[in-house]
């Protein structure tokens, strides 16, 4: 593991992206301190204004400060992205470990279930789940999380298959370690790497899915700002106030950029074939 740390620190991209992501998280945590205004406060006399000293990035159709909404939006978008992926990771790992380790009919059953979920058009499934559960941040997270479970199940299962017959697992089995012990203490640590890569990619996917749900009117509930929600709201005012759509798009791009490059960097580090590039 220490070699991983060394390689990680030697990789400029990885370090840069980590710092960027840390900054984003910090922005989200410190939103109340950083934001110049309450993100839901409507300044009636300042609707759809451009940049000014008081409103650095301008205001939206209600006269709300766009900068403050983007800062608070970091909270919502990151929470949605991270929690949705967490839901997928937890269930995906569990199913993947079980399917990969036990094989046979259990594997068959789980993977067929995953095929069912996978063959379902993603956005329609998310939409149907949100419609069934009702709106709200938690339900949105659950819907996006459920939709992504199959990808993680496949990733973990693949990794488990490649290591379950290795010597150290065999020996653990030989000394009579319990199955959960083998699964979580011997096998799981070895699937974290592909999980990490997959997760960093899935976060951007989750943030985008939330924006698509917002476009269909079922994302995060107003007036809470999510970047996706801001973009889909701003679409109607693209010509009148382009700033309303440009700034949240930039915020989203930077975040997704950081996540993806981080994922790539980690993959490069873990995969010796990529080293030295």
């Amino acid at each position: 593991m220490s070699t991983f740390r060394k390689r990680f620190l030697a990789n400029k991209t990885a370090v840069f992206c980590s710092i960027l992501l840390a900054l984003l998280c910090l922005t989200a945590v410190l939103a109340p301190v950083l934001a110049p205004h309450d993100p839901t406060q409507m300044f009636q006399d300042h609707r759809m204004e451009g940049s000014s000293g008081e409103f650095l990035l301008g205001t939206d159709q209600f006269g709300r400060d766009i900068l403050s909404r983007i800062i608070y939006g970091a909270r919502v978008s990151l929470v949605v992205g991270l929690s949705a992926v967490l839901v997928s990771v937890v269930f995906g790992t569990l199913f993947g470990l079980i399917a990969g380790y036990f094989g046979r009919w259990i594997d068959g059953f789980i993977m067929r279930c995953m095929d069912v979920l996978f063959a379902f058009p993603e956005i329609l499934l998310a939409l149907a789940i949100v419609a069934a559960l009702g709106p709200g941040t938690f339900n949105t997270i659950m819907a996006i999380g459920i939709v992504n479970i199959p990808i993680f199940t496949r990733t973990v299962r693949g990794a488990v298959l490649s290591i379950k017959n290795l010597e150290y697992v065999e020996s653990a089995r030989a000394i009579g370690a319990s199955t959960p012990r083998i699964l979580f203490q011997e096998i799981f640590p070895n699937v974290t790497a592909p999980l990490l890569v997959q997760s960093s990619l899935a976060i951007s996917g989750a943030i985008l899915t939330e924006s698509a749900l917002s476009f269909l009117g079922l994302g995060i509930q107003p007036p809470d700002p999510s970047w996706g929600g801001m973009i889909s709201e701003a679409r109607r005012y693209m010509e009148l106030a382009p700033g309303m759509i440009i700034w949240p798009c930039i915020a989203m791009t930077v975040t997704i950029l950081a996540c993806n490059m981080f994922g790539d960097a980690v993959r490069d580090i873990l995969d010796p074939r990529h080293r030295g590039k």
Partner: peptide
């Protein structure tokens, strides 16, 4: 590449139409 995967497609589409 990054712009393509990080800007929601409805924003890209609206921009094209407009």
């Amino acid at each position: 590449t990054l712009l393509g995967i990080s800007v929601p497609n409805f924003a890209i589409g609206t921009l094209l139409l407009l």
